[in-house]
Design a binder for these strands. Structure first.
Length: 468
RNA sequence: UGCCCGAUGGUGUAACGGUAGCACAGCAGAUUCUGGAUCUGUUUGUCUAGGUUCAAAUCCUAGUCGGGCAACCA
């Protein structure tokens, strides 16, 4: 991270509930006063503006409280993941201005350790191998309004469970047959506590572990373990995981020898008007070639925004501006655009272009300079200046001339004088027309120092046509 | 129908029992050199009903509305 942690003299940031919770934990000396967060994307797509909110929160909180933030690839489902995604996620996080230092991890690197934790759960009769088919399970699971019933395989002996689990790993059973379940409470009003699946059989080549495994841990089992293994103190995630928290805590509670106690805190994800934010739909746009890849400038991805010319500080400012709450909201894209303009105004070099050219012929061409000096950025003197060509044949925007001007029209019309940027004044002296009566060009007299009529002035010029 | 979460102007948020503030958007002006910029001004709000209190956006109760949860996805 580029800056030292904020102290109390730094610009005060609004006190959202997460900042408050962490602050209290630190004050109370929880986890030795340390703050360790993590950003844990699944490498199954590119990061988008919604992820930026999470990234800025995860890394931002760590920075503010003098802690660290891990970057972790949550790659427990090999069916959808790839190195391409891993590399681009790293690139995007770095581009946004965050630094994970040495703390880059893969969930898949913990597979062996997770397997041992699972065996431990079995030994303590907290997990069992279940042979119910997925169809049968639907029946056993019950419904939100109706309790479930216990699996007939729920009370096998520890030995039998250990043996079956080992054979699952060894590849003795077909995909989707047996699974390992936590033994919790089939009558719980929270469905996630009704003996959730911990491991499933899936023969799928993992982009890192290859064919080493044919069983993979489920998110609800893997995530708390990853957090615990890495010493995460504050595990920030989005609202839809709120009902998973009791299960997260259950897993953490069944771990031994923990020095830090990870805590899951949920916040509302970002929704933007007129913006598709679901990874699934973005993937579809890419696969159906409706866009030119993940970094198409029309995409709301970080890489798309980057290609569009959006500076990272604009995205960070935006994430700071939207705040953190616990209720779903729909943010107006206008706020993003405002943040982008704000950032660009300070850094972007200015150029002029004429979109709908109207030829201008200058009568007193003998006095003309061949070029004029233009400021590169009025808000940043260090950006310097540039010479732009000038001459007797110019173009102005068609909209900037009207033969018969309406009231309060402050641009060019016959007899009026207007300032042209960086290059003196033009007074319209004549109009040239096509056979059909449309204006084909105008003639003007040029004056380097005159004054414009009323407050009027205008506009850009192009001594030659440029094709952008 | 069960459980969990939430509700402040058009939008995003602040106010932590004591004057409802800020930003975006909108509107109206200003501006002889960014007219999609800048500056000034301005409209609009505590979901409802009870209760506690000298005092409620804030605490309590009920209701209403919205979101989430029944993947061997994350």
């Amino acid at each position: 991270m580029s800056d030292s942690p904020n102290d109390s003299t730094a610009s005060p940031k609004p006190m959202h509930f997460i900042r408050e919770m962490i602050s209290e934990d630190v004050k109370a000396g929880k986890n030795g006063g340390k703050v360790v967060t993590r950003f844990p994307p699944e490498p199954n797509g590119y990061l988008h503006i919604g992820h930026a909110k999470a990234i800025c929160l995860d890394f931002g909180m760590a920075q503010e409280f003098g802690g660290i933030c891990h970057l972790r690839m949550d790659d427990t489902n090999p069916a959808k993941e790839s190195v391409e995604y891993v590399e681009n996620i790293k690139k995007d996080v770095r581009w946004l201005g965050w630094d994970w230092g040495e703390h880059f991890f893969y969930s898949s690197h913990y597979f062996e350790r997770m397997y041992e934790v699972a065996r431990d759960l079995i030994r303590k009769s907290n997990a069992y191998v279940c042979e119910l088919t997925q169809e049968e399970w639907k029946e056993y699971r019950g419904a939100p309004t109706r309790p479930g019933k216990e699996s007939p395989y729920r009370n096998r002996s520890v030995e039998e469970n250990l043996d079956l689990f080992a054979r699952m790993r060894a590849g003795e059973f077909p995909d989707g047959t047996l699974c390992l379940r936590a033994k919790i409470d089939m009558a719980s009003p929270n469905i996630h506590l009704r003996d959730p699946v911990l491991y499933r059989i899936m023969r799928e080549r993992h982009y890192l572990t290859g064919d080493d495994w044919c069983i993979y841990p489920m998110y609800d089992f893997a995530h708390p373990l990853e957090d615990a293994f890495e010493g995460i103190t504050h595990s920030l995630c989005t609202l839809e995981f709120e009902v998973h928290r009791p299960l997260y805590d259950w897993v953490v509670d069944h771990l031994e020898g923990l020095t830090t106690r990870p805590r899951q805190i949920e916040f509302a994800r970002l929704n933007l008007t007129y913006t598709v934010m679901s990874k699934r739909k973005l993937l579809e746009l890419v696969q159906k070639k409706l866009v030119n890849g993940w970094d198409d400038p029309r995409m709301p991805t970080i890489s798309g925004l980057r290609r569009r010319g959006v500076p990272p500080e604009a995205i960070r400012a935006f994430c700071e501006e939207i705040g953190i709450t616990k209720y779903e909201s729909l943010t107006d894209v206008a706020l993003l655009e405002y943040c982008i303009r704000q950032a660009l105004n300070k850094t972007a070099q200015r150029r002029m272009a004429v979109l709908q050219p109207l030829p201008v012929t200058i009568e007193n061409a003998g006095d003309l300079p061949t070029s004029v000096e233009a400021t590169n950025n009025p808000e940043d003197p260090s950006a310097g200046a540039r010479q732009i060509p000038f001459g007797a044949k110019l173009f102005i925007e068609r909209d900037d001339f009207m033969e018969v001007p309406p009231p309060k029209y402050f641009r060019l019309s016959p007899g009026k004088t207007v300032r042209i940027r960086y290059a003196g004044f033009l007074t319209c002296t004549g109009v040239e027309k096509n056979d059909d009566g449309t204006v084909s060009g105008i003639t003007c007299r040029w004056d380097p120092a005159g004054s414009a009529d009323q407050g009027q002035r205008h506009h850009s010029l192009g001594a030659r046509r440029l094709h952008a």
